[in-house]
Simulated assay, not measured.
Amino acid sequence: MAAHDSVNKSNKPVTSGNRIISFFKELKAEFKRITWASKEDVKKALATVMTFCLIYVVIVGLLDYGFKSLVGVIFK
């Protein structure tokens, strides 16, 4: 019941044009509240992600090579 009480009630008829304008006004207000990471933080995060991706690629490549060699020995 409390959710219905907090709804903004107005006497204006709700049309699709009003809803679209209202949506973009609210969207603009939300964009003003965003706090973006600093450039240094983004660089650190990017370096960390790239490092872990490189490590993962190397490990998967070594496992692939190892299993390929093992299958070659078994079926030779």
Rank of each mutant, 00 (worst) to 15 (best):
L70C: 09
V60E: 06
K43T: 08
F24I: 03
F23T: 00
V71K: 01
Y56M: 00
N18M: 10
Y56N: 07
F24N: 04
L46T: 15
L54H: 09
I34W: 04
I59D: 04
F52H: 06
K25N: 15
A37V: 01
T48F: 04
Y65F: 12
L63A: 15
V42H: 06
L46I: 06
G72H: 14
M50T: 09
V73Y: 15
E40N: 12
E26T: 07
I21H: 09
R33I: 15
V14D: 02
N11P: 02
N18T: 01
V57Y: 07
K25C: 10
K44Y: 02
T48I: 09
F23N: 10
E40S: 08
E30N: 12
V14W: 07
A37Q: 02
S38M: 04
L63T: 12
A47V: 11
R33C: 06
I59A: 10
A45H: 04
I20Y: 05
C53R: 00
I20H: 08
G17I: 08
S16I: 06
F23E: 03
N11T: 07
T15N: 03
G72L: 15
L27G: 11
A37K: 00
P13W: 13
K28E: 15
S38P: 07
A37E: 06
R33Q: 15
N18D: 02
V60Y: 10
M50V: 14
G61P: 09
V71G: 08
V14K: 08
A29N: 11
E30T: 11
S16Y: 02
S38N: 01
K25H: 12
N11I: 01
V14F: 01
A47G: 12
F23C: 03
I20Q: 01
K28C: 09
L70Q: 09
T51R: 14
